[in-house]
């Protein structure tokens, strides 16, 4: 004990202590900080494979270095999340120009999408793909998600996320077929007409709440068929054409002479 007490007053002691503290902080940070899923998986090989895929499939529009050109956005800094969203929903690669890239069956498999995402993420830092925990609907509060969805999303996507029309042929798509990861990525990156809802606006926990709310909507309506849940158009069509048609038919039948 005497020896330690002596050394405690050594003039190098503060430096040694500071170094130890820094090491400890670094170790704790490394152990505790959430690492994005793709960060661990993205190796040099993945980036190289992604670059090859990019040159073959994407460089025609986005440029050989993903720097973009007139009418085609630069992908530098869009992050892995944007690539995963656009490619896993089949929006990219685009097959034809139009008001907006429609969702279609994806062209690449999961591994290829991860490679492309790794390549684009290697160009510049950007939003990464959320972890499975971050998008787990079971961890969200659907009631709070509904309040947030009503304020931030419902004006375009409709009150239960069935989508709606925008201007000049653009539209907010239905969210019924979107995976929780895709919903999270869309909020984070703001694809096409959609604004960005970054983590300072809607926190990761709140994003999870919104996902929980949307997952609940996938169970459908407790009242029976919801006629597409697109609002008064389909319901009005049903009432005016089918409902009133039946009433008119019944009135004609009652009044007609029988043979």
């Amino acid at each position: 004990m005497k020896a330690i007490a002596d050394r405690r007053h050594h003039r190098m002691a503060p430096v040694v202590l500071l170094l130890l503290a820094l090491l400890l902080t670094g170790a704790v940070y490394a152990a505790l900080s959430p690492t994005p899923a793709e960060a661990t998986a993205a190796s040099e090989d993945d980036i190289a494979a992604g670059a090859a895929l990019f040159r073959t499939n994407c460089a025609t529009c986005h440029g050989p270095g993903a720097e973009g050109r007139d009418g085609y956005p630069s992908l530098i800094g869009v992050g892995a999340a944007a690539v995963d969203f656009q490619v896993s929903t089949g929006r990219m690669p685009m097959q034809a120009t139009g008001p907006q890239a429609p969702a279609k069956p994806p062209v690449f498999d999961e591994e290829q999408i991860a490679q492309l995402a790794a390549y684009v993420a290697s160009l510049a830092p950007g939003p990464s793909i959320p972890t499975a925990d971050q998008v787990d609907p079971a961890g969200g509060d659907a009631a709070n998600g509904m309040a947030l969805f009503r304020t931030n999303c419902a004006m375009c996507h409709g009150s239960i996320g069935r989508g709606g029309a925008l201007t000049e042929g653009k539209y907010a798509p239905s969210l019924g077929g979107s995976t929780p990861t895709q919903i999270y990525e869309a909020m984070l990156t703001g694809p096409s007409s959609m604004p960005v809802f970054n983590d300072a606006n809607i926190t990761p926990e709140e994003k999870q709440d919104i996902i929980a709310f949307l997952e609940e909507q996938k169970q459908g309506s407790p009242g029976g068929t919801d006629l597409g849940a697109v609002g008064p158009v389909s319901e009005g069509l049903w009432v005016w054409v089918v409902g009133m048609g039946l009433l008119l038919g019944a009135a004609v039948w009652i009044g007609a002479k029988s043979a």
């Binding site: 304020t151 703001g190 604004p195 960005v196 809802f197 970054n198 300072a200 606006n201």
Partner: peptide
């Protein structure tokens, strides 16, 4: 402040392309 939480917003939180209610 944000609707509905009522929390104040820093200018740096509003990134380009963001929409806040």
């Amino acid at each position: 402040t944000r609707d509905p939480s009522g929390t104040p917003i820093k200018a740096e939180d509003v990134t380009v392309g963001s929409a806040f209610h």
